[in-house]
Amino acid sequence: MDDGILDEAYRRLHRTGPEFEGWLSNHGPMAVEALVRHGHDRGVHRWLDDYLRRLDELPRGLRPIDDWREALGDPKRAGDWLAHFDRELRERPWREVLGNWWPRLLPGIAAGATHGVIRVGHAVRVLREDGPGPDRLTELGQALGYWAARWQPVPGVAAPFPGGEGDGAPARPDVTAALAGLPRIADRTGGIVARLGRLRDVPEWEGAVAALRPARTPADAERGLVTLVHRAALDYLRFGHANAVMLVHAVTAPTAVLRTLPALDPALWAPSLAAAWSATAAVTAVYAPPTGVPMPAVAPGTPAEVFARAARHGDAHVVKLADAVLDAHAATGDERVLAAAGYAGQLMSTTRP
């Protein structure tokens, strides 16, 4: 991985805001991290030259964050949140800041159509695997600030941190069965905020989102997240045609959580699975059709070939999905998941990032 090119890309991007054109997420930091990670650093600045034209300036702060609970989920305070985390990460070790804020932010995992947690997951991977640096710490701060500003719970989730099953409690389904049992909203119009709001009107929703078997140990939580990413990637092959872009997040959100686990206290791993499950379940329920299609025909390839095709395609969602399914393939050995990236490329015919 060319650390210099990634740091240069971060510096270019950190002059821009976390959103643009109203409420679209800035995918630049996530996409360039994936491109550099997989050896496509030579094309990063050319990719950025095009992408940066679309972005807005970094938002200015209004006043310091005094009562974080009151400011959580207030997009008007985005500049304040960015400044807050920039200061925290200058004063304290990044793992300490992450460990303090992760349980506060986790219940709002739907933030920015799950892009808050996804951006954090990319930033944490760099810090964990390649070491800290000023630009990388700034990226984590901007990722956490974005999540805080757009903090949004998944409707119908009774408790963010469900515990284990008590004696005599009925057995709950595993990840695969819980995904298969998800209901769907009837009105499938509008954006994700409107769609999430309709979940409360689905009688089966609260039971379905609470149905997943809780993790009893950190190892259970890790295995559950691996399975969740794996099954969500396979579901993309069945349901992706319904909304090629938004259903990517059913895969990339739990991937981000899984990548963050090693930087967290193991006591947070089980609640992290619960939150990731709620995000994938919600995206599936509001965007996936009730019935899937047969597995599409996608050109086979090695992981390196699959990512190279995604990089040539250029769409940020295709790149990020390819990055996620390479992780799923490495964890499970299931070559079927690699086809999800190629299928996304087919569905998103544009090469504009």
Rank of each mutant, 00 (worst) to 15 (best):
residue 77 R to Y: 10
residue 262 P to R: 11
residue 160 P to G: 15
residue 277 W to M: 15
residue 121 G to R: 05
residue 253 A to H: 04
residue 248 V to L: 08
residue 97 V to N: 05
residue 166 G to P: 02
residue 183 P to W: 08
residue 87 R to A: 13
residue 9 A to L: 07
residue 162 P to T: 13
residue 192 I to H: 08
residue 321 L to I: 05
residue 317 H to E: 02
residue 203 P to I: 02
residue 312 R to L: 14
residue 254 P to A: 12
residue 218 P to M: 09
residue 207 G to C: 03
residue 319 V to N: 10
residue 182 L to H: 01
residue 179 L to S: 05
residue 75 P to H: 04
residue 44 V to Y: 07
residue 161 F to I: 08
residue 165 E to M: 14
residue 333 G to N: 08
residue 193 V to Y: 12
residue 153 P to A: 14
residue 213 R to I: 15
residue 348 M to S: 03
residue 344 A to E: 06
residue 237 L to T: 06
residue 226 V to F: 02
residue 120 V to N: 00
residue 341 A to L: 07
residue 25 S to L: 02
residue 326 L to E: 01
residue 21 E to S: 12
residue 267 A to Y: 06
residue 321 L to Q: 05
residue 74 D to Y: 04
residue 204 E to D: 11
residue 151 W to V: 08
residue 339 A to P: 06
residue 190 G to M: 06
residue 276 A to W: 12
residue 269 W to R: 13
residue 215 A to V: 14
residue 283 V to W: 13
residue 349 S to V: 14
residue 315 D to V: 09
residue 122 H to C: 00
residue 205 W to D: 11
residue 71 A to G: 04
residue 352 R to T: 02
residue 24 L to E: 09
residue 137 L to F: 10
residue 72 L to H: 02
residue 66 D to K: 07
residue 198 R to G: 03
residue 23 W to E: 01
residue 39 G to A: 05
residue 345 G to N: 03
residue 167 D to E: 13
residue 215 A to Y: 12
residue 311 A to S: 09
residue 95 R to D: 11
residue 125 R to P: 09
residue 342 G to Q: 06
residue 238 R to Q: 15
residue 5 I to T: 15
residue 349 S to E: 13
residue 193 V to H: 11
residue 126 V to R: 00
residue 50 D to L: 12
residue 178 A to G: 15
residue 51 Y to R: 07
residue 235 D to I: 14
residue 148 A to M: 06
residue 140 L to C: 01
residue 98 L to K: 04
residue 341 A to V: 00
residue 204 E to I: 02
residue 149 A to C: 00
residue 334 D to I: 10
residue 98 L to Y: 12
residue 108 G to E: 11
residue 218 P to D: 09
residue 308 A to C: 07
residue 229 V to S: 00
residue 107 P to T: 08
residue 165 E to Q: 14
residue 44 V to G: 11
residue 221 A to S: 13
residue 45 H to Q: 05
residue 40 H to Y: 06
residue 4 G to C: 04
residue 99 G to C: 11
residue 225 L to M: 12
residue 232 A to F: 13
residue 26 N to F: 01
residue 13 L to D: 02
residue 91 E to S: 14
residue 59 P to D: 07
residue 153 P to W: 13
residue 305 E to C: 00
residue 150 R to D: 09
residue 37 R to E: 05
residue 165 E to S: 15
residue 252 T to H: 10
residue 90 R to P: 00
residue 19 E to I: 05
residue 348 M to C: 03
residue 117 V to Y: 01
residue 3 D to V: 13
residue 7 D to L: 03
residue 224 G to Y: 12
residue 268 L to T: 11
residue 60 R to Y: 04
residue 298 V to N: 05
residue 251 V to P: 07
residue 122 H to Y: 04
residue 119 R to F: 09
residue 229 V to G: 12
residue 310 A to H: 08
residue 162 P to L: 00
residue 78 A to R: 01
residue 94 W to Q: 06
